[in-house]
């Protein structure tokens, strides 16, 4: 469904991505792991053009684009098939939960309000927020805000959803409700690319795992192989460290 090749990105003189390739099939749930500063978030942001890659190509639904010279029109075309969930939720602060979900449908996709609201309510019901349609973001907990963000992503019926550390800004007791929603989505066959520190999510939910370090993909494989049989020394170190941390934190 999506194939990217040779993505490179520098900020000033620092090269953050040094040639990243990835192949995503429909229904894949890919977890991207790696230490901070390894370029995972930048990579995900390049996928949705929140950052422009310096080099690389993307094939999306059989059409190939040069990421270094992509037009605004093509960006719009790809974005219409994708959705993004941010670490800090980034809900529109001046809009209710329902308006957050319908805003893109009405304004960008020119959908009728009544139809958009029906879809928006369905999406909010799905993430368990049927009693929060008319609440503003500041009236919701972090976990609820992130679920609204997921509903907003879902509503546009994207082909893939990108998640950028969706639980990292949450209080520990709120992480579960967000992961549960994501697990349900994965179960329904939604294609997802998830930058995460949640080892258990990666282990139990994802179909494929990618380990990034210093702007490159160091190791990738089926989730089971990756966790039971990591090939690289660095991957093993990382997994040991993270699982120790998370056991300590009781996650």
């Amino acid at each position: 469904m999506i194939e990217v090749k040779g993505i490179r990105k520098s900020f000033g003189s620092t090269e953050v991505l040094k040639g990243v390739d990835l192949y995503v099939e429909k229904g894949d749930v890919i977890a991207i792991l790696g230490p901070s500063g390894s370029g995972k978030t930048t990579f995900l942001r390049c996928m949705n053009f929140l950052e422009t890659a310096d080099e690389g190509s993307m094939t999306f639904d059989k059409e190939t684009y040069n990421l270094g010279h992509i037009s605004k029109k093509d960006i719009g075309k790809i974005r219409r098939k994708t959705a993004f969930v941010f670490q800090n939720f980034n809900l529109f602060l001046n809009k209710t939960a329902l308006e957050n979900v319908t805003e893109g449908l009405i304004v960008a996709r020119k959908m009728k309000r009544s139809q958009a609201e029906a879809m928006g309510k369905r999406a909010l019901d799905k993430v368990g927020l049927s009693d929060r349609y008319y609440h503003y973001p500041h009236e919701l907990s972090g976990g609820q805000q992130q679920r609204v963000a997921i509903a907003r992503a879902l509503a546009a019926e994207p082909e893939i959803i990108y998640f950028d550390e969706p639980t990292s800004a949450l209080d520990p007791e709120l992480i579960g409700e967000v992961l549960e929603v994501m697990r349900d989505l994965a179960g329904e066959g939604m294609t997802m690319l998830v930058v995460t520190h949640e080892i258990n999510f990666a282990r139990n939910v994802s179909t494929k795992v990618i380990f990034m370090e210093e702007g490159r993909i160091l190791e990738e494989g089926k989730a089971q192989d990756f966790f039971e049989n990591p090939k690289e020394e660095r991957t093993r170190d990382f997994l040991r460290l993270v699982s120790r941390e998370q056991t300590k934190a009781g996650i």
């Binding site: 949705n48 053009f49 929140l50 219409r80 980034n90 893109g104 304004v107 546009a156």
Partner: peptide, 9 residues
């Protein structure tokens, strides 16, 4: 950024 991601100009 959130606006861009839902397709707004």
């Amino acid at each position: 950024e959130a606006g861009y991601c839902v397709g707004m100009s």
